[in-house]
Design a protein around this nucleic acid. Structure first.
Lengths: 192, 192
DNA sequence: GTCTATATTCGGATAGAC
DNA sequence: GTCTATCCGAATATAGAC
């Protein structure tokens, strides 16, 4: 793999594990197996490299979520596929984690991929819910945009609860809780 | 105020703003207005001081949440009071934010207050939901513990979405979404 | 108890050889 | 393009004066 790509991948990993503040150029170089000079040849510095890595992570996360949300079945089924996807819960979300970092939030270059990812995700889920309502699959009792935000928040908050607990169970509970509430919005009883 | 207390308060603020990795002893001392020596006289080092500050923040957060959840009215009303409490959304949750920090998660002394706070919060809300079900206010269609985890996750995830967006609206959306789903669990229609 | 040095390592980056 | 050498300040802590 090219030096550039190894640098980007190492940065993606370290940002996920340790966040922006906790990731040093030296650590990136060592993981990538390149010297100091290489990094500063390809990138102007840590913010530049981090922005590149974040954009790539955002693309990847979006592709994965898009695939989940295109699962076969109803709107409910698709959202369930997204919520129930197999995750390494204790690692957390590599995009959502960035929202906690003040240096990321303060830098428009770094925040942009994070913001855009969640904007897109909320929008896509809201779309599904609205389609489900239009098709008569879901009741009209809930607002699509609000409900979509709640669904995404359950995932992001689930990571927080799981990491706080040191185990994945609270994430799974939150997901089951959200699905239980969503299930009540279906117009046909499938619990039988 | 005593020097010790000023150190603890400054640490609470900085942990909230910048996290554990991003908070330096020097910054704590400067904000507290004390010299290097004072801090190391009262505390053995950064981890010791941070643990003390976190325990205090956890107590405070728990007291506030307990008050919300003791609001007058039904179980739904109490959970709504918790969800709708006035928050400085873009600052995030001073306890939840710690869950992202690998150094906090790795240190049992630091993680304990975080874990205990969320364990308690989930348990308290689950209790309320179970009481609401027992009283016939809420349907038996949802699991109390799972639903409670979802409620807490919506708040924690709401902070993530809001910070990612640079504005409070996604938090408010998520809360409205959660309330909309919970409202459907009430046995009496109050939407009229 | 509090302060001012001082020590040591790390973070972030530049300079210049190859 | 990549490497090593080097620089400067910050992070964390210790020593010892007052």
């Amino acid at each position: 793999m090219a030096t550039q790509d190894r640098l980007i991948e190492s940065t993606q990993e370290l940002l996920w594990e340790r966040g922006y503040v906790g990731t040093s150029p030296k650590a990136i170089q060592q993981r990538a197996g390149v010297g100091q000079g290489s990094m500063y040849h390809h990138f102007t510095g840590k913010p530049d490299l981090a922005a590149t890595a974040l954009r790539r992570s955002a693309e990847q996360m979006r592709a994965i979520a898009a695939a989940d949300l295109a699962a076969p079945g109803t709107a409910y089924d698709r959202i369930a596929a997204y919520l129930l996807r197999d995750r390494d819960v204790l690692r957390g979300c590599r995009i959502g984690r960035m929202a906690q970092d003040p240096d990321v939030i303060a830098d428009p270059q770094l925040r942009a991929p994070v913001e855009e990812t969640f904007d897109w995700l909320r929008g896509r889920i809201a779309e599904l819910i609205a389609e489900g309502q239009a098709a008569g699959e879901l009741t009209m009792g809930v607002d699509p945009a609000d409900t979509a935000a709640a669904v995404v928040a359950v995932v992001q908050g689930g990571y927080v609860l799981a990491r706080a607990a040191g185990r994945a169970e609270p994430f799974d509970q939150a997901v089951r809780g959200a699905l239980g509430l969503l299930a009540a919005q279906r117009t046909v009883d499938r619990t039988a």
